[in-house]
Each structure stands twice: as C-alpha cells, then as structure tokens.
Design a protein around this nucleic acid. Sequence first.
DNA 1: GTCTATAGCAAGATAGAC
DNA 2: GTCTATCTTGCTATAGAC
Lengths: 192, 192
Amino acid sequence: MYTATVDTQERLIESTRELLWERGYVATSPKAIQQRAGAGQGSMYHHFAGKRELALAAIRRTAEQLRAAADAELSAPGTAAQRITGYLRRDREVQKGCPIGRLTQDPDVMADPLLREPVEQTFAWLRTRLAEVLAAGRDAGEFDPGLDPRATAAVVVAVLQGGYVVARAADRDDPFDQAVTGVLALLTRPTT
Amino acid sequence: MYTATVDTQERLIESTRELLWERGYVATSPKAIQQRAGAGQGSMYHHFAGKRELALAAIRRTAEQLRAAADAELSAPGTAAQRITGYLRRDREVQKGCPIGRLTQDPDVMADPLLREPVEQTFAWLRTRLAEVLAAGRDAGEFDPGLDPRATAAVVVAVLQGGYVVARAADRDDPFDQAVTGVLALLTRPTT
DNA sequence: GTCTATAGCAAGATAGAC
DNA sequence: GTCTATCTTGCTATAGAC
C-alpha cells in the first residue's frame, strides 16, 4: 500500500529535524512542529506520544544520514589526505552548524539517555573512522610518521565543530573556512 | 557607602551567569534566576527591566572575564609556543564548555544584536590576539615559516570550542584533551 | 486519522501594598 | 527595595467527537 504524497508522519519527522537544527530541542514547541508539518494537534499526538518521541525519531534519522554522508567521503577513492580534505571541504551550511553537534548544548537532550545516545554514537564512530584513515595515511607516508591517529582525529572533529561555533559568532563563514584551511596545512605540510 | 555582604543585584547577575552557562538563555527562566539568587520576583524586576537586561549584564561580565583570562596566558612571559600551550592546557571545566561559545547555539541570543555583540567581539579579539602570538612565534623560528597566523589562530580557537562539543558528546574529558594534544603536536613538530 | 475543546502549568511581566 | 497578587500568553498534553 502506497500513499500518493509524503504522509503526515513523515512530514512531522522532517519538520522536527529542521526545527531541532534551527532552534534546538528546548526551544522547539509541538505547536511549531505541527504548523511546519501542516498537521493538527490531534494528528501529531496520534502518530507520536509527544515531543520527546518525535525528537527521538528525528535525531536518529539525522544521525544516520550524517554518518552515511561522512562515510561516503572517508571511504571514497583516493589517498588519505584527499579523503580528509574532501570531507572537510565538503559543501556545508556553515551558519546552521552541525545538526548533531548542536544538540550537545541542549541540557534536556543530554539529560535524556535515549535522546543522547545517537549523539554520543555518532561522534564515537566519526573519531574512530577518521583515526583509521589517518593511520592509513601515516603508514603510507603521507603524514608525519609520528602522527597520533586518535589525537589527530579528535583535532579534525573539533575543528569542524568549533569552526561552526566561531563562524556563527562572527556571522560569516570565513572563520570556518580558515580553520579548515589551517588544519589541512598543518596536517599535510612536508615531513622532514 | 558599603554593603556588608554581596548585594541582591550582584547575586542576580552571578546567578544569571551560572544559569546561562549551564542551561543557556532560552532554557533559563526568571524564576530560576530568582531562586538561585535568593531574591524575590519584585526584587529582580526592581533592579532589572527583565530577563533580557539581566542576561546582557551577565554576558558582558562573562565576556570581559574570559578575555582577561585569555590575555593573561597569551601575554605571559615565554615563547609563543609556551604561551599557546599554556592557554590551551589551562585548567578548564570541560564538561561545562565555554560560557561564551555556548551562547552561539542560542537562537534568541544570536537574534538580538545587543546580546550577540559581546559574543562576536570576544571571538574576534581572541582570533586576532592568537594570530599575533603565532606570527611572533613564526618570525622567531619556532614554527614553520609558511605558517598562516590567521588561519592557524582560527584552528586553535576551533579546536577549543569543538573540543568542548566532542567532550560533552562523549560525556568524558579525554576527547578534549586529545584534541589539544593533537593540535599542539601538529603545531610544534620540528620544521624541515 | 484528524479535528476541536479543554486543562494544568510555567514563562515573563506588571501593580500596588508595605 | 522587597513582597504578594494578578495577568496574559504559550507550552504540552488529554478527551472525545467526527
């Protein structure tokens, strides 16, 4: 059985994903979700137990997509340096920031184990995956032989997340771009 | 004329600073501020026009302190590398994050020019100051001669801000410590 | 499945007594 | 300066009709 258009449940999840990205969990009301989804009060509470359940579905989907997108870059053909560069330089909505990273600042999300879990897992996976790529690059002679894959993976993730913060503070994208450029320069400059 | 103890106005500002740090602007209510300050409703509205005015005073003070603390490290005696290391390795409440950087994720703060201004200025100053120190270090032969001070300053700030994000996601401090260690290793490794 | 009505409660602020 | 009472609005959810 197929529906002709995107159904209400689907629109509710997508609206929630957008609002969580734009405003966060605490600042997002059920009413705002309903309006954006074009759904009524009763409709929303028919499909979901409440704001929390909706957020859970939204966060899980966003985490899944983020991971798939990152893995596409990091598992692409090319050298380790090329893959890391591709990942860092990918087109991003810098002013909107990271839809998962921003949840980290939401006290009600972090206080809820179920809402928190996808956030935690996403970053754990990302650091591990980056460390693998960095280790491969080091072993292939692309980077400094003394490079610590895990520490450097933490740097790469932090530069992205922090780049968003600084860019938002400046109300411009270029601090983000500078940070990305800067870390790539540090990473790939010629080895002794 | 001196008051024997810290007065109400002062306690209100300090309570607001704490709550903005812990929960952000949107999630902080006047009632919560009053309770933490041990002040009544009428007392708060006597001293401040409302939540926004209080937040403005709190944010400005926090920005001022953050800047003074950073400048103390960055203007300390020692080489550029030592000062940057001292700044990055200073004792921090990693799980609480940056009291200014977190405001960046608060839609209502960023939408208000007056509340936003100290956030913007703090980061603008910090990047400039770090770039000065990095340029001095490069000119003194401490870093790679090809180092871009502005881009690298953006990296340093981003690593801090992003380090907080990743540490909160992991519910542990070590991703932050790894990022700091990693970026210092990239920065100070021997030049060709 | 979706709608409207209703409800309890908190946010944010004002008024006026003391 | 501080207190209590009051007000309006929005949040979040439930109830029951359609």
